[in-house]
Design a protein around this nucleic acid. Structure first.
Lengths: 202, 202
DNA sequence: TAGCACCCTGCCCGTTCGGGTAGGTGCGGT
DNA sequence: ACCGCACCTACCCGAACGGGCAGGGTGCTA
């Protein structure tokens, strides 16, 4: 292996980006060829640099991990040669599974040892580290509308008020709320907020 | 200023700790004399190394920022010579105010520029950077009972069910829920969960 | 001793919610 | 052309909620 492993870092926090770069650049067989703070930036950077590994933070903004998950799928689809390694603070197993389901080659919790991180980067690069994907536990997939309703719901709006805000009737709001509750397997709107927060959807 | 600024880093994520260390060690006038991942470790490390600045992440575990806030107060109380700089991902203004109220000398959002971070570290060290504390906005103080009720409420229990669980009547539950809502300045239980999560009380 | 904070309970009332049924549209894939 | 899915709307009804009221009690502290 003469070539150095080319890595792109995607994280919205400058400190994490720079910190990771500092760590990785100390390794002789690894080089950081780019970094990005947003999905758009990530896609263009990866396209431009064609890295071996993309270190991807799932939480790219205050909207939770959805942004990162989506980006993960996009990166895998457009750049199958690059191995996406999910970097996250979430201890939530469903999130990890969701990322793997979308084609991530590995995942790293942010409190891992640096040595382990390096091991994983080298592992996915050589292909010696294979992740067991095992099909789906399928975290609930909310539609656009449902997400919108849920955010308004979390702010304490009544169905009627949500209807005003979303320009739909309160009957429709109730319809969507039912959908949300069914998918999250809960029965009260307070629990919706709780579950959504735990899953990082909110 | 002949002496180098001595810094201790407190963060539960190894990657953030090592990353920060890598960044700071590049500066000739700054030296990282210790790091910690937990409150206990932080207190002993700070006591042992007597740093000028403590970089403190508010979110030290999955319990939210309460752990960090408490530690912030403890550090300030036991080591008034050390300047605590709060490092956090939370964009929430109330959290920052709460930290300052407990004696933090400054705060840094994790997505700041590295240059700004260095500026702040040097600022608190020389005392040229002074934070306006302005007394208190006082984050709401819930009683033991209210906290207990709130946690059950978040799980989606009805007032009646909460009563069963807490061995009190549903009338009393409603009494406490009213108290919670009043203190959080909200009017619906879904919003209670939302507000409590944002404040890290849950 | 009085005051205060916390805790507990009951009743009222109008509003909102949760869940059910029973429809409608439009869009994208097989 | 058909199916599935997201989306929209309307009706019903019992349960739960939100916010008032009016009272209990304890324990600690000034």
């Amino acid at each position: 292996m003469a070539e150095r492993t080319r890595v792109v870092i995607v994280d919205d926090h400058t400190i994490v980006r720079e910190g990771l770069r500092s760590i990785l650049e100390l390794e002789p067989d690894i080089t950081v060829v780019g970094h990005a703070a947003s999905p758009a930036e990530a896609l263009s950077t990866v396209a431009a640099t064609q890295p071996d590994v993309v270190l991807l933070d799932l939480k790219l903004d205050r909207d939770g991990p959805v942004t990162g998950l989506t980006l993960c799928g996009d990166l895998v689809a457009r750049h199958p040669a690059a191995s996406v390694v999910v970097l996250t603070t979430f201890h939530d197993r469903t999130l990890v599974m969701e990322a793997l389901r979308r084609g991530a080659k590995g995942y790293v919790l942010k409190d891992v040892d640096v040595v382990d991180l390096l091991k994983i980067i080298r592992g996915v690069r050589t292909g010696s580290l294979m992740v067991h994907v095992a099909s789906e536990p399928d975290s609930p997939r909310l539609t656009r509308r449902e997400l919108e309703i849920m955010r308004l719901l979390a702010r304490g709006l009544t169905n009627r008020e949500i209807g005003k805000a979303a320009l739909i009737s309160d009957s429709t709001v109730k319809f969507h709320v039912r959908g949300i509750m069914r998918k999250l397997a809960v029965h009260h709107r307070a629990e919706v907020v709780y579950a959504a927060t735990k899953l990082g959807i909110l």
